[in-house]
Simulated scan of single mutants.
Amino acid sequence: MARSDTARTLDRFPRAALARYALTQPELRPFASSFNDIYRVSAVEGEFVLRVSPRQCVHSAHAAQAEQAWTDRIRSAGLSAPTVVGTRDGGLVVTEDGPAARRAVMLTWIAGKVLEQPFPADRITSLGELSARLHQATPPSSTRPAGVLDASSPTLFAVPDVLESAPPGHREILRQRSKQAREWLHELWSSEEEVPRVLHFDLTPKNVVEMDGEGLAVIDCEDLAWGHRAQDIANTIYGITHGEFDAHAITMFRTGYERHAAWPDLDDERLRQLFIVRRIGMVNLSLTLRRPGLAEYLDRHAAALTQ
Rank of each mutant, 00 (worst) to 15 (best):
81 A>P: 10
81 A>Q: 07
82 P>E: 02
84 V>F: 01
86 G>T: 14
87 T>Q: 11
89 D>E: 14
89 D>G: 01
90 G>T: 06
91 G>H: 09
93 V>G: 08
93 V>M: 06
94 V>A: 06
94 V>D: 07
95 T>E: 12
95 T>L: 02
96 E>R: 11
96 E>P: 13
96 E>S: 12
98 G>K: 12
98 G>S: 12
98 G>E: 11
98 G>M: 11
99 P>F: 00
101 A>N: 13
102 R>A: 07
103 R>Q: 14
103 R>P: 02
104 A>C: 06
105 V>N: 07
105 V>D: 07
106 M>G: 02
106 M>R: 03
106 M>V: 02
107 L>H: 07
107 L>I: 00
109 W>N: 01
111 A>K: 14
111 A>G: 14
112 G>H: 06
113 K>N: 13
113 K>D: 15
116 E>P: 00
116 E>C: 00
117 Q>T: 09
118 P>E: 08
118 P>T: 08
118 P>M: 08
119 F>I: 10
120 P>E: 07
120 P>L: 05
122 D>V: 12
123 R>I: 00
123 R>P: 00
123 R>N: 08
123 R>L: 02
125 T>A: 15
125 T>E: 15
125 T>N: 05
126 S>C: 14
127 L>V: 03
127 L>Q: 06
128 G>S: 04
128 G>W: 04
130 L>N: 11
131 S>F: 06
132 A>N: 13
132 A>T: 13
134 L>K: 06
134 L>P: 06
136 Q>S: 05
136 Q>C: 02
136 Q>D: 10
137 A>I: 14
137 A>P: 15
139 P>A: 12
141 S>C: 15
141 S>H: 12
142 S>P: 01
143 T>G: 05
144 R>V: 09
146 A>K: 10
146 A>Y: 04
149 L>M: 11
149 L>Y: 06
149 L>A: 08
150 D>K: 02
150 D>G: 03
150 D>I: 02
151 A>Q: 11
152 S>D: 09
153 S>R: 08
153 S>Y: 02
154 P>H: 05
155 T>G: 01
157 F>V: 02
158 A>N: 05
158 A>P: 01
160 P>W: 02
163 L>C: 08
163 L>V: 07
166 A>F: 15
166 A>Q: 14
168 P>G: 05
168 P>Q: 10
168 P>I: 08
169 G>W: 00
170 H>S: 11
170 H>V: 03
170 H>E: 13
171 R>D: 09
171 R>L: 07
171 R>V: 09
172 E>Y: 11
173 I>R: 14
174 L>R: 09
174 L>T: 10
174 L>E: 09
175 R>H: 13
177 R>S: 13
177 R>A: 09
178 S>T: 12
179 K>A: 15
179 K>L: 13
180 Q>K: 05
181 A>V: 12
181 A>Y: 12
182 R>M: 08
182 R>A: 13
184 W>N: 08
184 W>S: 11
184 W>E: 14
186 H>I: 04
186 H>N: 15
186 H>P: 00
186 H>A: 15
186 H>G: 15
187 E>P: 00
188 L>I: 07
189 W>H: 15
190 S>N: 13
191 S>N: 11
191 S>T: 15
191 S>P: 00
191 S>L: 07
192 E>V: 10
193 E>Y: 05
194 E>M: 01
